[in-house]
């Protein structure tokens, strides 16, 4: 589904990603872990098409297409979804209107008819249950005045509504209490299928207790320095990132 080869990217002349190689097949869950500043969020941003990052080298193939050639909206329409670390507040734009516009643009791209009002609302109600969000949220302006937990749940709700093929969760656990974390993880797990894939970007192992990865990769200084199965996450939790950084001394 996704094949990243030797990806190098920079922002404002500063190189952040220094040769990433990663392959994600459908049905898989990959976790990308690493200390602050290692390039985790940059990788998520580059995949979603954030324009301030410059790709200097390498390639990203997604479902047979060159992902880097696509605009952010076309990536989304082709099924790439980024759950933001910091969801953006958009005053005055109602959540319902936003979702309707988004879903119909995605459908149009896929050659489907726009959803009528009834089917749209039914679709929303189905998905709301997944992340346990209140209907009143739909009439509020998008993310405006939402609590941290509401914002994160709203991200997963949008993910459920748009039914992506490849979901990238960028530090979705940051700032969540344990109850919200369970709700969010539960939503993600229910959306998992043999046809889609998930990349979970996180600093902590905690989230991976609920969203169990097939693979864990450790990103450090712009490169994946270690890959393994879920036990790697536990090892990191125990030993800390210095174990990766220094390669010699262990301080936990």
């Amino acid at each position: 589904m996704l094949k990243i080869e030797n990806l190098e990217a920079s922002i404002e002349g500063k190189k952040i990603l220094k040769g990433i190689n990663l392959e994600v097949k459908k049905g898989e869950v990959h976790a990308i872990m690493g200390p602050n500043g290692s390039g985790k969020s940059t990788l998520a941003s580059v995949l979603a098409g954030r324009e301030e990052y410059e790709v200097e080298n390498g390639s990203v193939e997604y479902l047979g297409d060159d992902l880097l050639e696509l605009s952010p909206e076309d990536r989304a329409r082709a099924g790439v979804f980024l759950a933001f670390q910091y969801p953006v507040e958009i005053p005055g734009v109602s959540s319902t209107n936003f979702l309707k516009t988004a879903i119909n643009e995605v459908r149009q791209y896929r050659g489907q008819e726009p959803l009528d009002a009834v089917s749209f609302l039914t679709h929303l109600k189905d998905k709301m249950k997944l992340v346990d969000i209140d209907q009143s949220l739909l009439s509020r302006p998008l993310n405006e005045g939402f609590s941290g937990g509401e914002k994160k749940r709203n991200e997963i709700f949008q993910m459920a509504v748009l039914e992506p093929r490849l979901s990238i969760l960028d530090e979705t656990d940051s700032g969540l209490d344990i109850d919200a974390l369970k709700v969010v993880s539960n939503g993600v797990n229910q959306l998992k299928s043999s046809e889609n894939a998930t990349i979970v970007v996180t600093h902590y192992q905690r989230l991976l207790e609920y969203i169990v990865p097939d693979y864990v990769h450790v990103l450090y200084n712009g490169q994946i320095v270690k890959s393994g199965d879920k036990s790697l996450a536990l090892e990191l939790e125990e030993k800390g990132y210095d174990w990766i950084k220094g390669g010699s001394e262990v301080t936990a």
Binding site: G49, S71, A76, R77, F84, I90, F98, E105, Y109
Partner: peptide, 19 residues
């Protein structure tokens, strides 16, 4: 943010300005 949900750049601008 809006573009990352599949909304075109033009429509995203229009949505924000309209609001």
């Amino acid at each position: 943010y809006l573009r990352s949900r599949g909304i075109s750049k033009e429509k995203a601008r229009a949505l924000v300005l309209y609001a």
